[in-house]
Design a protein around this nucleic acid. Structure first.
Lengths: 385, 385
DNA sequence: TCCCGAAGTTCGATTTAAATG
DNA sequence: GCATTTAAATCGAACTTCGGG
């Protein structure tokens, strides 16, 4: 093994400059160097000339403290593990940015891994993160069929953990989700207020946690109004590993609805992907959106606003969800350090309706219409549970 | 400071179980435990009963070696720093996945940071990564106006570095880019072969490295054929920090072209974002795509295939670019370890034409048309430079 | 000498207690 | 005794060396 030369390698190999190199070069001991560079309490007694000399040589050599050595000593790493189930889901990006922004402000380093819906990767990355002694863990279970025993693993490891996008009512894991029921209620209300009564529904896969509350929102609204839910106009997305297949499924299911000659004037899709698939099927059949059929999605992922017609949808407050998960995790870490108990928190954030160009009043229906191209946002208050 | 109890805390706080805890519990010394768990050469002499007992207690306690301690000793971290300039750019995601996949196979851990086009974040994250002693660095400079002195910083730190999406001809940094000129040639050839002669161009921002070679491809093709490039049909995207503004700019520029009553039967956009903006402007003006006007993009980001009409575009081999950058970085790391020189490598990958629904033959022009909805891919060979 | 296991040293930074003038 | 500075212990794992049977 080649022994690294810790001699006078002035700045030529900055990444391996140690505190001792700085000490030797400046003529002081490593203790003094450490005290000065960290502005430790004892630095009060160090005269300015010494400080200046040490700081100058540290800079000259390009000294960077080895975080491994420091963490080993201090038992703190200032890192947060982030496990994402599928980064290619456009839903993730804004959440991740929200997480990064918050962590950056607290000078925490996110260790971000994409498990790509593979159980083996999940376990492997989790192992690495635990080995790295991340102080907390944020799990982004956006499109999740894996039955997560994060619980058992994490309970055993006592790492403050927050899960986004997937509700876990029990256990020590905090959760941050969108209020799916309120969201789907916003969507159906919007279509209803535009005069639509014959509405087709593309529901979510049965195995996905979001599917149930979103459908509940629709049912409750129907019960409370004169809206009829015709089973022949209701279809379900298949279970799938990948969120992108929602697009194709939305396309196929809509084609099938059209082929079966069901009458409908609007489609409420489970998410934006399936909504975009539905739009393609409609346009392919020569049906104009929104003039002949309205379409509404859920999520407000990036492509939703880029397509034409721009998609009316229910927006999840993704960046806020990321930020909130960080603040919960940091609180839990703090509690852990003070040996205080920290009961799992469960936050459910309010979605908002974003009205764009894929929905329009039913022919002849009078409503608060608006010129095409403008986008309107209806915001609800955030509700904690 | 609360001193962590390193006593017999059987599994209750797995993340802080040390090798000594395992030693105490199993009745052997930490040396033996280390030898057994790492299956070191000396493990040959350890009897099976000892091994079993050690492995059992390690599992029972949920022992995980502290990677900080290990790295400190071994001078290896098996981590790779990844600096992304803007994760919200859909162009990034597939590249990141390519990087992750390759690193995962080599059991390297990516440390992925999003500098969000802020110089201060770049420096801050770079500092953290160097402090973490990442073995290599991959920089994803997708939408880059910052004048990168990655060079000076990294040269000083002697860290093997690969840059994706931004060419740096000199210096120790290897680069991986797409062959922009070949790509734009594919695009213009495609439009030309469909019969288009009156073509509008939305060029890239002047300050962006990709803009020049892409335009060169067009000019060379025009020179070699009877295509005329009318300056009145050429517009430039403005400089901008954010790739998403390309959409709005594409929309505005196209509207302006239409307002100026320029004649054109096709638009060649700088990238997919501006192409999607162009499509919206065309449709808003009542011009059908592709029947009355074809549109072609560049990149093949996710939204391109989700929109209707699906976008014909030039695909960058993003996942390959990610994988290639990893393999270069790992080679450089290996060379570094063997104290061999490693001259910077510069790879230029071939793009491919993906024909979808936003381009069509000019009215009455005979060409190798194909039924709508099918997508065709034309692949070039990869060329190294 | 062979086998098995344990002490002791090392990595780089921090911190306590102690030493110097 | 005071103002400065430093030796030495420490963190957790790995590995070399050493000792007892």
């Amino acid at each position: 093994m080649a022994k690294p030369t810790n001699s006078v390698n002035a700045g030529q190999n900055g990444s391996r400059v140690t505190i001792r190199d700085v000490a030797k070069q400046s003529g002081f001991s490593s203790s003094t160097v450490s005290i000065v560079l960290n502005d430790a309490p004892l630095a009060r007694y160090v005269p300015k000339v010494t400080k200046d000399r040490i700081e100058a040589t540290a800079k000259k050599l390009g000294y960077r403290p080895n975080l491994f050595a420091r963490s080993l000593r201090s038992h703190r790493t200032r890192t947060m593990g982030v496990l994402v189930f599928d980064m290619s889901d456009p839903f993730c990006t804004p959440i991740i940015q929200g997480i990064e922004d918050s962590l950056y402000q607290k000078s925490y380093l996110p260790i971000l891994t994409d498990v790509q819906n593979e159980r083996s990767r999940f376990e492997s990355y989790l192992g690495m993160l635990l080995g790295l002694r991340v102080e907390g863990l944020i799990v982004l279970g956006n499109w999740l069929f894996m039955d997560v025993d994060v619980l058992s693993d994490l309970a055993k490891n006592r790492i403050p953990t927050v899960m986004i996008g997937h509700e876990l009512k029990k256990g020590p894991v905090s959760t941050v989700i969108v209020d799916n029921e309120a969201g789907s209620r916003l969507a159906i209300e919007h279509l209803f207020s535009l005069g639509h009564r014959e509405i087709a529904f593309i529901r979510g896969p049965k195995g996905l946690g979001d599917s149930i509350p979103r459908w509940r929102g629709v049912k409750k609204f129907a019960d409370a109004s004169d809206l009829v839910l015709d089973p022949d106009r209701i279809v379900d997305l298949p279970e799938s590993q990948h969120p992108m297949t929602g697009f194709e499924a939305g396309y196929e299911l809509t084609k099938r609805l059209l082929d079966s000659r069901q009458r409908f004037t609007a489609i409420m899709a489970f998410d934006d992907m399936s909504a975009l698939g539905a739009i393609r099927a409609l346009l392919a059949a020569g049906i104009n959106v929104p003039q002949q059929c309205s379409v509404i999605g859920f999520d407000d992922v990036a492509p939703a606003s880029l397509c034409t017609p721009a998609l009316t949808t229910i927006r999840q407050p993704m960046s806020t969800m990321g930020a909130m998960s960080v603040s919960i995790a940091l609180e839990a870490i703090k509690a852990e350090h003070e040996s205080k108990p920290f009961p799992a928190l469960h936050r459910r954030l309010a979605p908002e309706l974003v009205v764009r160009d894929s929905t329009a009043p039913l022919n002849g229906f009078v409503s608060s219409a608006r010129p095409l191209g403008e986008s309107r946002r209806v915001v609800l208050e955030t509700a904690d549970i």
